[in-house]
Design a binder for these strands. Structure first.
Length: 256
DNA sequence: ATGGTAGAAACTCTA
């Protein structure tokens, strides 16, 4: 069983990459972010033709999440309960006894921005919700673009990034509060090469110079973490022509 | 010194 996450930065533009990637990476479930596609325009037929089901919660221009999967998800949720939000950033579904939550955490723009305050409030609401979800679903995976680099090893130049949005202490503290619920950052179960990132700015040849951050994560409940056999970043997808600024992350689980 | 690139959509905002 493989679970993936990929911020595609426009589903419309990245659809050819995604359709080429699906049979190669062969995820059973992949969470997508920044689809920037309203549900009426979601290319469901393309996924069905490739042998996948799909769920979407999107909007025009900004945000938008989707879950593409081999089997059909049920008990779908599209919001953090009790948290009013016009932005489409949440999609949850159940596959057998596996609960999957797809996240697109707000970027925050800068630590002095109103969007940063929104980000921290959003993360607080998320944490309260996930405390309930992890109690309810022993096999829970929370995948997505967290827009947080949790540790110095997740940043190409931690000194430069100290105090900046995506790596500021309040954001990292919010990430640690998620971990404190019992989640495991699956990428760090395994020894990983240095300079392993999931996002590189389009500007300043950041990818070529590997000036990246690891901000896309697969958090697993303890029961799922115990079944995880590998986690890797599909860096090649960032090297293609007209790429997303994010690479996919894939976790393999041995569910027996 | 606060640049630059990409996407969507509208002549700017977001990341």
């Amino acid at each position: 069983m493989k679970l993936g996450t990929w911020n595609v930065n426009s589903l419309k533009v990245r659809l050819p990459h995604l359709l080429a990637w699906l049979p190669n990476a062969a995820p059973d479930v992949v969470c997508l972010q920044e689809t920037k596609t309203q549900d009426a325009d979601f290319p469901l037929g393309d996924f069905e033709a490739a042998g996948f089901r799909a769920l979407a919660s999107g909007q025009k221009t900004y945000n938008g999440v989707a879950i593409v999967s081999r089997s059909t998800g049920i008990d779908v949720a599209t919001a953090i309960p009790g948290f009013a939000d016009d932005q489409k950033r949440i999609l949850a579904a159940t596959f057998g006894d596996l609960r999957v939550i797809c996240l697109y955490v707000p970027n925050g723009e800068s630590v002095t921005s109103d969007k940063y305050r929104y980000k921290l409030g959003w993360l607080e609401a998320l944490t309260a919700w996930l405390a309930d979800e992890i109690a309810r679903y022993p096999k829970l995976a929370v995948l997505g673009d967290y827009n947080i680099a949790p540790e110095a090893a997740d940043v190409y130049d931690p000194k430069l990034w100290e105090g900046q949005v995506l790596y500021s202490e309040p954001e990292r503290a919010a990430f640690r509060r998620l971990i404190a619920l019992g989640f495991v950052d699956s990428f760090r179960i395994f020894a990983q090469p240095e300079g392993a990132f999931t996002w590189w700015d389009y500007r300043m040849s950041a990818f070529k110079r590997n000036r990246g951050l690891r901000i896309d994560h697969i958090l697993l409940s303890p029961a799922l973490a115990a079944t995880c056999t590998s986690v890797r970043i599909d860096r090649e997808m960032r090297a293609l022509e007209r790429p997303s600024d994010h690479a996919p992350v894939i976790a393999e689980l041995d569910l027996g």
